[in-house]
Write a protein that binds this DNA or RNA. Structure first.
Length: 123
DNA sequence: ACCTTGACATTGG
DNA sequence: GCCAATGCCAAGG
């Protein structure tokens, strides 16, 4: 992971903006997978790009990067790492249960109404 | 059957 | 060419 740019320039890859917007739609208390965000952003198969994009998200946008997990619910960072602990703490603050570096998707995965989401994303 | 954990092939900045 | 904010699958419980 790298430091976020303040919010001066560097929009990064053109698709980053879409990824940030989609991630912004995840409600508090819910989580999504990198692949899910990629799909909803019109970027099927680009899960890794989502991880990159979140790392570059301008702090000013307040993108809830911590609500995005691996497809099986595990936190992507190494268990016990500083990043993993931070993510765990942020999730717990909104009542998402994290055990052994993992969230039970059965209980917390975001299931957006596609039509509504598409509408909100287009402005 | 269902859930966890560990390993790794692939992808893309 | 390097490296990782993934997904997937196999093994074990």
């Amino acid at each position: 992971m790298q430091e976020n740019n303040q919010n001066t320039k560097n929009t990064g890859h053109p698709s980053y903006a879409r990824i940030w917007q989609t991630t912004l739609q995840i409600p508090s208390g819910k989580v999504a997978s990198y692949g899910q965000i990629a799909d909803l952003s019109g970027l099927p198969g680009r899960a890794r790009m989502v991880g990159k994009a979140l790392g570059y998200a301008p702090k000013a946008l307040q993108v809830p990067w911590y609500r995005v997990l691996r497809s099986d619910g595990r936190i992507a960072f190494s268990p016990g790492s500083e990043h993993a602990l931070l993510q765990t703490g942020l999730l717990q603050e909104e009542n998402v249960v994290v055990l052994n570096n993992r969230v039970k998707l059965k209980m917390f995965q975001w299931q957006p109404d596609l039509a509504e989401l598409l509408f909100k994303l287009q402005h």
